[in-house]
Write a protein that binds this DNA or RNA. Structure first.
Lengths: 284, 284
DNA sequence: TCTTGACTCTCCTCCTACTGGAGGGCGTAT
DNA sequence: ATACGCCCTCCAGTAGGAGGAGAGTCAAGA
């Protein structure tokens, strides 16, 4: 029989840990003195402790190890547990390697730029939503005004309010100076009749690379170049039309409807505009 | 300005998390109502939140992100942080892959044997220790008795007590039926003169594959075959003579000296013997 | 026999990044 | 008036211990 310190030295396990294992019933001391509460361990508890250490190195939790060692599990269950663990570790390795890619990308960016950038690309799972919108080909990117006016008028006419921030979809797969194929959309939560121009449909969700941009719209270009470089560097490809979501913009019905009474805080200076670029992606 | 739920929807971050970030000062609400304590968030806090999410995906802690975003860090420090993180992830991947190897090995063992085994191999860092010992070539493995008698007598004569469990080193690199080159050793903590037969030296430590065996010595063979198979399967090689450490055995001076008064608990049935096999290894 | 120093005990707090729930206030629509 | 949805704060819990306070125990030396 050994005192806890001796047993700790023999097994290379800290005293604190032995006490903890005793407490949770994973390795109860062979004997506890009734008067002093000193724990005594026996040499034949070493095999069990060794099994505990070995199973811990497989990544099992102490609760799992307890059940396993107490024989509560059939060999079938043990196999299942290990296979599950195997899958978890594999996924963990995948994730870590993706993380490593991201860190290395950031390091390279810093080496190149001398400091950190203002744009941070994040992957998000975007939910589908019901939207009303107008698709049209317009002369240039910046001439969306009439489309918005038309859409807003239509919504107002049917007394329908926006259910979220409006957005624009860009359908062109290559950059075009003129005759751009765009769709201006506003989320709605109430039924709405369609018209010749205004269509209502379910906008699909999915995995998107996102970046939030603050400032006037003519400075969106840098954000776009960052996000595109990110997508390429991290091994994704674009699988749908990209979106500009107008989180803060002039005459924002959404802001109005959501936080009525706060509108006086809303400035309309372009430097305060907040736009999120979302690009649907998938792993190549 | 948005209420917390609206901001949560826009950013895809749970309300609880936003409150937590507010509490720790990572993203404080733009405004808090003096009377209701309602938090208000502004759209131009979205870029910051996005940066937080992006940095979190690099594996940084919230405390690190806080300092980073508050500009407390020089670009140099940021580089250092990222490089450290990079190294950590790389190590993590290494570890996970080793863990995966272990899990897969266990799964194969179960497929083969139908259930889990009684031997669990564990890697340990063994500390060096000062030992007194006799090295000799003896007829067979099981004829170590005279060596032990000689060593014990010598220690008793110099009134030196064991400072830990005794052990045997096996120097043969191949299996031999007879004329085995062994060294019987006992750890000591007090100075001791050497003799013609008994030498005192520092027994080196290092990384060892270990397994604890319970039972008579003639059943050690299975434990050895398991540990050797493990070493090969996990990509290690043997880098020194293997050791048998006698954790519980007949006439154990160590047990006696350590826990005097408990000796009556010590049975001497071979089925109760506990021996740890240690084999020095290194990654191939 | 007394003291000293090494161990040991229990109980408490702390760590990460949240999550879940209780109990209660606030705002709006019916 | 009330019902529902949103919001608040505070408390407890997560895994696996680490660190420390304050007190009791044990063996050896003076």
């Amino acid at each position: 029989m050994f005192k806890i310190g001796e047993f700790s030295k023999l097994s290379q396990v800290p005293v604190k840990t032995l006490r903890y294992y005793d407490e949770i019933g994973l390795l109860t001391a062979a004997e506890v003195d009734r008067f002093t509460s000193y724990r005594s361990y026996s040499a034949d508890q070493l095999p069990r402790l060794n099994r505990i250490l070995a199973l811990k190195e497989l990544g099992l939790s102490l609760a799992q190890i307890t059940r396993l060692l107490d024989g509560d599990l059939s060999p079938e269950q043990i196999r299942g547990m290990l296979r599950l663990k195997q899958a978890q570790i594999q996924q963990q390795v995948q994730e870590d390697q993706a993380q490593l890619t991201r860190v290395e990308w950031r390091l390279r960016q810093i080496e190149k730029e001398g400091t950190m950038l203002d744009y941070e690309v994040v992957l998000k799972e975007i939910n589908p939503q019901t939207v009303a919108g107008i698709r049209d080909t317009i002369p240039t990117y910046s001439s969306q005004g009439p489309l918005w006016a038309e859409l807003c008028a239509y919504l107002a006419q049917h007394k329908v309010k926006a259910a979220g921030p409006s957005l624009t979809l860009y359908y062109d797969t290559e950059y075009r100076e003129r005759d751009v194929d765009v769709e201006t959309l506003t989320p709605v939560s109430t039924p709405l009749p369609e018209s010749d121009r205004v269509k209502v449909r379910e906008l699909p969700g999915g995995l998107m690379a996102c970046v939030v941009h603050q400032g006037a719209y003519d400075t969106l270009g840098e954000a776009y170049s960052q996000i595109l470089a990110w997508i390429q560097a991290h091994g994704y490809r674009i699988v749908g039309p990209n979106r500009d979501v107008y989180l803060r913009c002039p005459d924002n019905d959404y802001t109005d409807s959501l936080a009525s009474g706060y509108k006086d805080y809303l400035t309309e200076a372009p430097a305060d505009y907040v736009t999120e670029i979302q690009i649907p992606v998938a792993k190549t």
